[in-house]
Amino acid sequence: MERYARGGLPWLAPGIAFLLLIDLFPLAYAVVISLYSWWLVRPSDTRLVGLGNYAGLVTDPQLAHDTAVSAVFMAGAVSLELVAGLFLAVVFARRARIFDLVRPVILLPLFITPVVSGTMWRLMFHPDLGIVNYYLRRIGIAGPPWLSDPGLAMVALVLLDAWRTIPFMFLVLHAGIVSQPHEFFEAAMVDGAGSWQTFWHITLPLLRYIMVVAVLIRAMDAFREFDIFYVVTSGGPGTATETIQMLNYRIFGFGRVGLASALSTLTLVLVAAMSLALLRLLGRERTA
């Protein structure tokens, strides 16, 4: 076995070298840059500041605020996507011809770029011209100021993200459900288990591993979400929906390369820590 592994190494070397070049080298370079005070406006003043950029960031109240906003968005969006995606996956697991026709329609939002969907939803939530408040008015409800109220702006963003990515959850969970072995369900039916008991005691436990993977992927994406925030609210009203990615975008935009690299590294550490926590949970489920 070991001999085979050694023999395969030369064949793997180009791939490993390529990965090192495009993944690890830029990452390591970004970490090195993060130790410098480097402002593009004054490149000649570039100097080593050690952990100075990190110290500046962690003591800046803006970072704590923006990290909290990113976390709230991630928790809200991923929870909604999981529940809705699971519901659709269970419903569509039943064999009916109509579902085959509807399934592609459900997947459509997944293929629209975030900037386009963000622009669409910004117009939909417009207080005077938006379709959301128009229909609310038609049924006698005064439409709320979706994007100018701090709480509602976050709700609007969560709804938009859910609309975009519920299809992803649905797709993954649906694949998980239809591939579950029939024997368990047949045994449950013979034992007189109802639909809810079958779902709770068989479908869900069998799906847990796939659910954790889907949640992990979506949580990482949601924490790093940028496009829809930029297009729909630009971080507003006030700074209510300003995320860690928007902060990074702005810092880099002002040519503060060292500081932006430090923030990128911090974000990477945060996402990695979050992923590890979820993977540990996954590990426990697998060994349990």
Partner: peptide, 21 residues
């Protein structure tokens, strides 16, 4: 100002004027 002015950008100001709001 309009009730949702806290979400107004450059383009929204134009829209409000253009619509006579």
């Amino acid at each position: 100002a309009p009730p949702s002015v806290q979400s107004y950008s450059f383009a929204d100001v134009n829209k409000a004027v253009q619509l006579g709001k």
